[in-house]
Design a protein around this nucleic acid. Structure first.
Lengths: 111, 111
DNA sequence: GTCTATAGCCTAGATAACCTAGGTAACGGA
DNA sequence: TCCGTTACCTAGGTTATCTAGGCTATAGAC
């Protein structure tokens, strides 16, 4: 399986994962990626070429808002936080994921 | 959530679901879709515009083979069955799914 | 003093999967 | 006659992701 094939599964869940990460509080993009990878023992890889467009996309949709700030390491960084709309979307997507993954796992016998 | 947004989750799992369906024995395309929808209480919808290209794609990759035959309702239908390569692929993809969905569920708290 | 790694952000272009929306054909029932 | 179902096919659009680059700045090694 190529990396492309492996990571296709991310399709549609990346946004949800980002929303969830931000539900713990504001974070900058780089930190979101690091947090997700760490939290899942590297099972999830978040490429920057996917991450930043996703953040931009979601801000445009009104799910996030951002401000420039300074990171823990004293570097310039853009911090994102959830909007009310983003929070609502997160709940809907979590439900959609539960339903979908439940169905798939049932079929595949990985329940 | 638009249908497009909802069904994005299918990305990358449709092939696996098809392989799994065929692991129970040969089936024609239409029956694969019906079986998956029934098996998941309609939680998964398999559009024909996704299904047939997927079957074609997978046959081209050597994961499936097909012959024309006659359906239960006496209609002309193309029956697909797994190749050895398809069976191996199924196992790999089931593992990838377990790892991926486990990671996502852990993050989302839907474990 | 230069080189490399790390922290950060950004984007153009390619790829590929899925859906929409059509089409074909044959059959059965109202 | 018309509609619903079974069954297959495909062109074209959308869109998310990845590849592969580029940028700036700091810190440490050599």
């Amino acid at each position: 399986m190529t990396p492309r094939e492996r990571n296709q599964l991310l399709h549609g869940t990346l946004d949800t994962l980002i929303l969830k990460t931000l539900s713990h509080g504001p974070r900058h993009g780089y930190a979101i990626a690091r947090w997700l990878e760490e939290e899942t023992d590297e099972a999830l890889r978040v490429e920057e070429g996917s991450l930043y467009p996703a953040l931009y996309r979601m801000e445009k949709k009104g799910l996030l808002r951002s401000e420039w700030g300074v990171s823990e390491l004293e570097r310039r960084a853009k911090f994102y936080h959830l909007t009310r709309k983003g929070r609502a979307r997160l709940e809907a997507e979590i439900e959609a994921w539960a339903s979908f993954s439940g169905a798939v796992s049932r079929v595949l016998g990985t329940g």
